[in-house]
Amino acid sequence: MSPLSSFLSIPSFCEFETLDSVCSSSTWVSTSVFLSSLPGPLGSGCLSLSLFLAPPADVAVLINIGLPLSLHEGSGQCFRVGCLLPVTKNLTSRLSQLIELLQSSDLHECVRTIVTALVTLLIGQLRQIKDLHQDCWKGCLRYYPTDTSISVKCGETTLEYDLSTTTNQQVERLVQTDVTFSAYYQAMQAMGPAGNGIVHGEGPSGTGKTETFKDLAKELGMKCTVIKSETHTNS
């Protein structure tokens, strides 16, 4: 059994519920990340890592790793706990397991890329739990399974997650900071009924302007085209 297979089989959460039971709650909100389809040894499943939160007390965590993306069909495992502390503990435990995986020198490069992305996002989620009262929560994208798809909400904006673009996306993710969530929130409002669909990002070189918007596109399942305006070339 490969290290990753071993990791995936660890039932480290104590309270399992079906996805349907979590979805039937009218109060839960979530932040979630859907990563690309997995080439090579992990087959064709779609990575997803989701943290469902209904602050301040009721919390559900869903982590699908290496499973086909079928949230709306209820095939994902759900792990529900009653307060924030166990969630933090479980995510920290899962994070430690992922970090141990990264210490393996023979880890396939594509798997390393995926696990690296998961670690990046898990640390971001741990910080979200810690800073729930801060503005970063406002910028978290919240995913709601529907009968046929998944809707993404943030502020006053609701978009449909484009499941058709979840394959072949690059999985690299930028470290999430307060600026990330502020940018997500503002961009989502620009995409909503009150916005005109145009966002300007400005700041010094190396502050993650372009990558932040590319990451947002990944979180929304959007195709992203980058046009170098100076040269008029597509990339």
């Binding site: 470290v175 900071t177 600026v179 502020s182 940018a183 503002q186 961009a187 409002q189 620009a190 916005g195 005109n196 145009i198 966002v199 300007h200 990002g201 400005e202 700041g203 010094p204 190396g206 502050t207 993650g208 302007k209 932040t212």
Partner: peptide, 12 residues
Amino acid sequence: LPGSAVIKFTKP
């Protein structure tokens, strides 16, 4: 452009 959102990025 008028009416569009402006997001300021600061030092990482």
